[in-house]
Amino acid sequence: MDVITFHYTISPDDFTRAGEASSDVKSKLKKMGVTPEAVRKVAIAMYEGEINMVIHAKGGEITVHISTERIEMVLEDVGPGIPDIDLAMQAGYSTAPDAVRSLGFGAGMGLPNMKKYSDEMEIHTVIGEGTTIRMVVNL
């Protein structure tokens, strides 16, 4: 099975650029003829992940593997890690600082939306070392 891989480096603390990677993936998927629904799922799940990396983890790396069967997104950061995943998965729970909230982020829907819009999601996190999230959207 052929796979095309794209890498994105997410720069820290730059909200003006947050969302560029997911936007790029979205435009590629649209040209590939993926169903509109799948494009939407990938765009939202990846956008939320990307924003999380900027807010909580000083950026990181995103790798996207595209095939005709699935889209796999791997988001890796060397941030603080997630102490309580179950709590973080609750809608409305957020640890985002006030400065970020004033920009309209930090509504506590990041991880819940990533879960909701992906078909598979795995979180691997180590406190003080970082978090890796793998999401899959089936086509």
Binding site: D2, M32, G33, I66, T68
Partner: peptide, 20 residues
């Protein structure tokens, strides 16, 4: 109705190959 004029090919297979 949606008009998918920006697809690179006629099928997803073809579009995928062309994206590559």
């Amino acid at each position: 109705q949606y008009e998918p004029v920006f697809h690179l090919g006629d099928t997803m297979m073809e579009s995928f190959a062309r994206l590559n």
